[in-house]
Each structure stands twice: as C-alpha cells, then as structure tokens.
Design a binder for these strands. Structure first.
Lengths: 237, 237
DNA sequence: CGAAACCTTGACTTAGGTCAACAAAAGTGG
DNA sequence: CCACTTTTGTTGACCTAAGTCAAGGTTTCG
C-alpha cells in the first residue's frame, strides 16, 4: 500500500485521538485524524450492501460509485464520489449500498467508534454529508423528471469544472467554448447511474455527435465542441 | 401563529414509538438547544429554493416536503420529511430546495451560526443527515429503476410502520394483514414525488383497488387489505 | 491471434405520457 | 341550506420516448 498524504488538504493538525480542539477554520479532512489510507484497484469492491458497517471512508483520490441492486438484478448507481467525499454511512449497522471503485482509488479508513468520539470528525462529517445531500437532491430531479437527452447532457456537464452551476460565467474565450473530458465509467455504469438502458445512452451520445455538440475520440474520451450548447440541453436553462 | 415549546416530541420520531422514554445522550434533538418552535399551516412555504439559508430546521410534528423546480415548471419532490428530520441545509448560502408543509407542522428553528458553534448540534446533524441520506438512496432506486406499480406500492408501504423493512416480521395476526392509512398528499404531490404523472398515479391506485389489494374510502383514506401482497409489489422481494 | 468485454445500430414493442372529458369534493357566499 | 365556482381525482383514446431483442462492430487483453 503506497499512500501519500494528499497535500492540498487541511493542515496536518496532530492526528491525536479524541476531541483535541483544533482551530477549525480551514477544511479539516478525515485524513487528519487517525485511520489508515488504503489503495484499491479499478473495479474493486470496498464493501457490499448488507455488510456490517464498521468503518467510515473518505475518498482521497480516484473515484468510487455507490450502488444498490434489486433482487431481480436491476441496479441503480446512487452516487458517484469524488475526492473529499465520505461514504460507509449506515444508520443501522449494515451498509446500505455497495461501494466499488471506478478507477484506482485511495481511501482513508477510520474506525466508526473513533468517529463517534471525535467532535472534529462529526463536524467534518456533517459538512460533507450536507454537500453530498445536495447532489442527491439534484440527481433525484434528473431521475424523476428529465428526458434521456437532458440526463446525458447533465451528466457530461458535471464533468466540466466551473460550468453549468449557478456561478457559471460562460466560456472564458468566446471563440473556443470546448472542453476535453474522460469518462471513467462504461456505458452500462452510466446507464445505471442515469436510470436509462445502455442502448439509450449509446444512442443519445451518437445523437449529440451527429448534432456536432460533441466529438467522441475514444469511447471514454469525449470532446465537447460547444459547452454552452450542451448546457442548454440539461433542462436547467 | 401559536407556538408551544415542544419539549418532548409530539409523536415518536423516526423509529421510537410513542412512549419510549429516551435516554438524553442517545437521541439529542434540536429542540434541546435554543432556537424557537414555529407553527406553520397546511401548504405554507417555509422557504424557497434560492433563498439565503440562515437557519436550520427540525420538524417536530406534522409533515414537510422539499422540492425542486425546473425552469419549465416540472417539479420533483425530493424528500418527504417526518418528525425528527432536519432540513434547511445548504452548502453554499442558498437553500437548494423549497420547503412546504403538507399539513400543519411545528418546526424548531435554530440560527445557523448557533449550529456552527455547538458540538452537540453537529453530532445530531451528522446522525440525522446520514439517516436521511439512506432514504434518498432508496428513493433514487425507486426513481431510476422501478415501474409505476412498484413506485406506488413502495410509497404506500412506507406509510405502514414496521413493515416492508429488513426487520419486517410479517403480519402480527395472520388472518388480518390489513392497515388503514391517511395520505397527506394530493395525487399531484404523490406524482411529483414518485416521478410519475397524476394520471398514472390515479390509474395505478384504481388498479390496486380492482385487484383487491386496497380499498379507497376517500381519496386520501386508504385501507390496505393485504399488506404482504402490496409489499410483494414493491420490487424489493 | 482469438476470446471476451464493450459499444453501436436497427426493427419492433410497450409503459407511461398527453390530451380531453367528466365526476366528485371542497370551498364560498348569499 | 343551496347554487356556484374551484380544485382535485378518474377514465378513455391515443401517442411517443425509451425499453427490448437481435445482430454486428470495436477494443482490450491473455
């Protein structure tokens, strides 16, 4: 296991146990408090739905999806996590989702009893959860009310930093409103995330291609020709 | 506006039934820490999506829904809250949803700055949020992967205490597996919650009636003839 | 190279949406 | 208490977006 302390985050305030009162202005992170960093390969399962929950996890690098299965095999990817997100939550004592990596990932694992005791961890937890909750709210709108095109457009827009949100200021260069992105999910994973079938996802992508909004260099390498056009297809403007 | 200080929860909150005297440490509630209890009438808006967030709210009694609107008027009800739930969360400084009562409701309102300072409130917050998060995960499965019948069946089952969950033990009396419930939502609200149209909700209910699974006494008064049958229609067994 | 996994496309089906009419409650005001 | 409007719910006829099934093309990898 090779892990580097992710530098950008927090200030290495003594990882002491229990409620050491840390000046909490800055973005404290789970990695600042005990636990260990663990590396997982692509498509590794970190835990299964129904497993007893004994740890809390913070994603340090890479990407992880949480999904639930219905008994007949239908799957819904419920969250796609990015570094800084927290998972492993359970109110009872069982994990409510399966957690699987989408690419190599490093994860900070903290014992639940430890989390229970630390005021700082609780505080960080509350902040992370409320942020993730907003994401879930927005995703509920996508799943409940958006068309297939709107779903795919929204999905792609989420992969473009600083665009599409409330604070979106439009293209930096008005003559070149393009962006290159990498999907770290297969068509099936995207479909299960967006509540569609693999065929519909494929068809929508082909359609965006035909309309000149995107260019597909490789299945997982997509060039957005006009970010603003795509944004107008999300149903949010 | 008449508000009484609701020191002890009006109805048992999530999980606890009525008379269980709870040890303080385990289930601290927002009402234990400052703020004021406010009463809202049926279909009152507590705040709008986009309003600056300045308070945190705990639902003490009654029922509140959170919803988001798309610019063209499509609505998604994102959560239906029960006593003990917390809302008013915002990661930036704007509320991400509109909060509207479904029936008369009493709400404990705590200033956000106050929440920021209290370790106990942060702890309570983390616990409530992780519980609500599970609900959102399950709802994502409903919205992304379930048929109309499964959605309505799941919705109704959620209104039956102690049934349908992992811990469901089946009917108490094997000869009488019935239950009476009251909907506090219009067909339109149910539709917007389940990601369906009002017509589909109406048709599914008529269909359940025709099949003898339920009896509709008044539009909002529904008698479940066979809870187990209904449960088998949720897609989860 | 060959197998397996993944992606795309076409032809066809269908669950649920749309539109429209009507029925049943629930307010409102005299 | 009764007209009278408004809101809410139901039902039917029809339509369409997305699902299903099937075939073939690409990429990846041992």
């Amino acid at each position: 296991m090779a892990y580097l302390e992710v530098g950008t985050r927090g200030q290495g305030a003594a990882g002491a146990h229990g409620g050491t009162p840390v000046p909490m202005a800055a973005t404290t992170s789970f990695s600042d408090f005990g636990g260990k960093a663990v590396h997982y390969d692509t498509h590794a399962v970190i835990y299964y739905e129904g497993d007893p929950a004994k740890r809390l996890y913070e994603l340090l690098s890479g990407s992880v999806m949480l999904y639930k299965l219905l008994p007949d095999g239908r799957r819904q990817v419920v969250e796609v996590l990015r570094p800084g997100d927290i998972f492993g939550l359970a109110n009872g004592d069982e994990n409510d989702c399966t957690a699987e990596t989408l690419m190599d990932a490093t994860v900070q694992e903290v014992d639940l009893r430890h989390v229970e005791q630390s005021n700082d961890l609780q505080r960080t937890l509350a902040r992370c959860l409320s942020s993730q909750m907003r994401g879930l709210h927005e995703h509920a709108v996508l799943l409940g009310r958006k068309s297939a095109v709107e779903r795919v457009a929204s999905f792609l827009m989420h992969l473009v930093p600083d665009r599409g949100g409330v604070s979106c200021i439009g293209p930096v260069d008005p003559d070149n409103d393009s962006f290159d992105l990498r999907l770290h999910m297969t068509r099936q994973e995207i479909a299960d995330y967006l509540g569609l079938t693999i065929e519909t996802v494929s068809r929508v992508i082909s359609d965006l291609k035909r309309r000149g909004v995107i260019r597909v260099d490789k299945a997982d390498r997509i060039h957005l020709n006009r970010v603003c056009s795509l944004c107008r297809m999300t149903g949010m403007h």
